[in-house]
Design a protein around this nucleic acid. Structure first.
Lengths: 241, 241
DNA sequence: CCAAAAGTGTTATATTTACACCCATGC
DNA sequence: GCATGGGTGTAAATATAACACTTTTGG
C-alpha cells in the first residue's frame, strides 16, 4: 500500500461506506468488595457457544449516546446506582471476539459499594452474580482477558488516586481500608506505617463516631474528605503505599 | 428504563440492527522530538468546515483489522517506519465530533525518531507537517482535545517507563536525554542528580564512543539497553525523575 | 583565551521500612 | 480471663534535593 492511496477519514473521504461500519459495545468490569474479597458482577450468558459461562455486563452503544454514557446506562440499569465511579480502560477489537459478527467493545471498570439495598436490587436480576476475581477461571467471549486488563489498570490507579473509597461504606475503620488495599493489591501492609501514611495525606476525616456491636475495642470511623483531596490534587499528590 | 428491558449484547440479543452500527476510526498523535521541541505530525485538513486547520493522521478501521492494526497501518503509510512505539489511549465518541456522521474514534499516540531518512519520506507527503505542541492553538474536529489527552498520557508514561528513547537517535548523550525530559515534561532537572539516577537504573549502555564535530568537549554516547530493562521490569521498576 | 558543554561528590532533608506492646470491648 | 482488633513511636536505611567547580574541545 502506498501513501498516496490510503483512505484518510480526516481529509478527502466524503462518505462512509456501510462495509466500514461496525457494531460498537461497552463492557463493564464492575468491582465490589465484600467479605474480604474483591468481586466482579457478572451475568449468566445464554448466547452460544458460551451458554455455561458468565459474561461481563455490557450493551451495544446506541446512536444517541457516547460510549461513556452507554457504560453509565448499563451500570444504572444493572445496579440501580446512579452515582458510580466509572473509568474507560481500553478497546478490544479482535475480529472474532463476538459470535454475532464484528463487535468492537470499549471496556470500562467501575467501583461500587456492595450493600443491603444493592443486594435487594440484584434479587430482581436473578441472572446476576458476584464472582471472586481470584476464583474466576474463564468468562464468555474475551471477557476474561478484559477483566484482567481492567484489574491491572484498577490496581495501578488505586495506588495513585484515592479511588478505593468507592468500594467501602461511607464510614469505615482504618483496618477496613487497610484490608481493602491488601486484598486488591495482594500485598501485606504494616499497620502503623499505613495509618501514618493515610493520616499524613489528610484526606481522611474522623467523624467522631466509633464502631458498634463488635466484640473487641471499637474503632474510630473515618470518611473520605473529597474537598481536601480536590484542593491538594492540583499541586500533585502521591498515594503510593 | 427498567432493568428487564434493556438490550444486552452479551446475552439474548441475536442480531445487530444496522441502526446500531457506527463508523470506527483511529487517530494517531505522532510525537517527534527535534530542535529541542516536542512536535506532532499533522496533515492539512480539506474537509469542511475545517479546511484551514490541521488534523491528526487517522483512518477508518477496516473490516479485517483490529484498531491496533489500523493505527499501525496509518503509521507505516504516513511515516514509512514499520517498528513504531504505539500506545492506545482512549475512545472519543461525542455525537457530533465528525461532520461525516457518527464516527467513534480510538486515539493512539506514537513516539518516533525524526531523522533525515524520515524527512525525505515526508517530502513525498507534502501535506504533512510537524507542529510544536506548545504552539498549537487549534486542530480540526476534536483533535486538539485528543492531542491534549494523549500528551498527558505520554507525559505520565514517560515518567514510569523508559519510552523516551523512542524519540532519540539510537545513540545519544546524557544531556540530550535530559533535555528531552525537560522539554517533554516542562521541568528543569539537575544535571548531577539526573545522571546519577539514570546510571543507577542500569538501562544505559556506554557504547565507548564520543560525539564528533561539536565545538566543545565531546560527550560520551549511550544507548538504551533493552535487555537489561526487560530483565528488571518483572521485579518492578520506577523511572521517576 | 573564550565559549560551550562534559563530567564529577558531598551534605542535608525527606521518605520509607521494620518492629512490639498495652488497651478496650464482648463473650 | 480470653479472644479480637485498636491504637501508638522510634530508629535505621534509603532516596531525594540542593549545590559549584575543573576539564576538554573547537574556533
Amino acid at each position: 500500500m502506498t501513501t498516496g492511496t490510503i483512505h484518510n477519514i480526516n481529509t478527502w473521504l466524503t462518505q462512509i461506506n456501510n462495509d466500514f461500519k461496525a457494531a460498537v459495545s461497552v463492557d463493564c468490569v464492575i468491582f465490589g468488595y465484600d467479605d474480604d474479597a474483591l468481586k466482579i458482577l457478572v451475568s449468566k450468558c445464554d448466547m452460544p457457544p458460551f451458554e455455561h459461562e458468565y459474561s461481563l455486563l455490557g450493551d451495544i452503544v446506541h446512536p444517541d449516546e457516547t460510549t461513556d454514557e452507554s457504560a453509565k446506562r448499563v451500570l444504572i440499569a444493572k445496579t440501580g446506582f446512579t452515582d458510580v465511579f466509572l473509568e474507560q480502560v481500553q478497546v478490544f477489537s479482535d475480529l472474532n471476539r463476538h459470535p454475532l459478527g464484528r463487535v468492537i467493545t470499549v471496556a470500562y471498570f467501575s467501583l461500587i459499594k456492595i450493600d443491603k439495598d444493592h443486594l435487594d436490587h440484584l434479587e430482581k436480576n436473578a441472572h446476576l452474580q458476584w464472582l471472586d476475581v481470584n476464583e474466576i477461571r474463564s468468562l464468555a467471549f474475551d471477557h476474561f482477558n478484559i477483566m484482567h486488563t481492567c484489574l491491572r489498570k484498577m490496581q495501578k490507579q488505586i495506588r495513585e488516586q484515592p479511588i478505593g473509597f468507592n468500594l467501602l461504606p461511607k464510614n469505615f475503620t482504618l483496618l477496613q481500608l487497610q484490608r481493602l488495599y491488601e486484598v486488591v493489591l495482594n500485598i501485606v501492609l504494616d499497620k502503623r506505617n499505613f495509618r501514618r501514611k493515610l493520616k499524613g495525606l489528610g484526606i481522611l476525616k474522623d467523624i467522631g463516631e466509633i464502631e458498634e456491636a463488635v466484640s473487641h475495642r471499637p474503632a474510630r470511623l473515618y470518611t473520605f474528605d473529597e474537598s481536601v483531596y480536590e484542593n491538594k490534587k492540583v499541586t500533585g499528590f502521591n498515594f503510593e503505599l
